[in-house]
């Protein structure tokens, strides 16, 4: 990672739902090429933060700067067009379409066309290439199966594959590891490292701390919508406020 190249800069981001302060004055920096982990107990505002950055919901206050340009409040498709794409916590593939055809939606987007991800007629091949890169055996029947028939492990990969179809700069993975077995996660980890090596920057929102800490370069911890701690995985794990947030008061030893 490149500590002197901030790619995404979030400053003073806040969002209230009714009387609930979902995200409160959160600031953070994402450096080019790193994997940034975001952790926090249930309801701590992780997904809301992701939704704010990706334009899913509009912030009440604060700014999100991508390469110096304020993109807070932009519509989602414009943000995706800049190369900031996300996966969904509860996977959202197009269930009635075959796996490779799931990539046709993103491959038809303006960004994919601009980035040269295949012309008319080549897009099926491009889709199969991306799926192969992400672990769908090319000569098997798996890429041709309907998404509704795929097991969770493949659906998670399909979420990533749809992001890759846009040649993204930043992938925001919302609980990519949830619902997967330890061995499935073990097979995803090298894949993410490979993508990072290929120049993609990651924000990973996770509950599976051990796996995340082996991957992430830096970690941010949230609780009740505020940032309580930031640092290397080791530092965050040792932080008493983080332990308290996860284990409750008195569980800090």
């Amino acid at each position: 990672m490149n500590m002197d190249k901030p790619l995404l800069k979030v400053e003073g981001l806040s969002k209230t739902f009714g009387g609930l302060q979902a995200v409160q004055d959160v600031s953070m920096v994402l450096y080019q090429g790193e994997i940034l982990g975001i952790i926090g107990p249930n309801g701590s505002g992780k997904t809301t933060l992701v939704n704010l950055i990706t334009g899913f919901i509009k912030p009440d206050k604060g700014s999100v700067k991508f390469r110096g340009r304020d993109i807070a409040g932009w519509p989602p498709h414009k943000i995706a067009d800049l190369g900031i794409v996300r996966t969904f916590q509860n996977m959202r593939p197009y269930y009635s379409l075959e796996a490779y055809r799931n990539l046709i939606v993103p491959l038809n987007s303006p960004r994919a066309k601009r980035m040269g991800m295949g012309r008319w007629g080549e897009r099926d091949t491009v889709a199969l290439d991306i799926l192969e890169e992400i672990g769908f055996e090319r000569d098997s029947f798996v890429p041709y199966k309907k998404a509704s028939a795929l097991p969770t492990g493949y659906l998670k990969r399909l979420e990533l594959a749809r992001c890759l179809a846009l040649k993204p700069e930043v992938i925001i993975a919302d609980e990519l590891f949830s619902g997967l077995s330890a061995s499935e996660i073990a097979s995803l980890v090298p894949l993410i490292e490979k993508l990072q090596g290929g120049g993609i920057t990651f924000i990973m929102v996770e509950h599976r701390l051990r796996e995340l800490f082996s991957l992430a370069n830096r970690v941010i911890a949230l609780d009740f919508g505020t940032k309580i701690c930031e640092g290397s995985p080791k530092e965050v794990m040792a932080n008493p406020r983080v332990r308290q947030a996860y284990l409750g008061p008195g569980g800090s030893d």
């Binding site: 990706t54 995706a80 197009y94 379409l97 046709i104 939606v105 038809n108 994919a112 897009r123 179809a165």
Partner: peptide, 24 residues
């Protein structure tokens, strides 16, 4: 057709399509 497939995808989950750079 690919445009037709893309429209079908959007019909199934518009928000996901927006996240993938499609202008709803």
């Amino acid at each position: 057709t690919r445009l037709g497939l893309a429209l079908r995808g959007i019909a199934q989950d518009e928000q996901a399509a927006m996240m993938l750079g499609i202008d709803s």
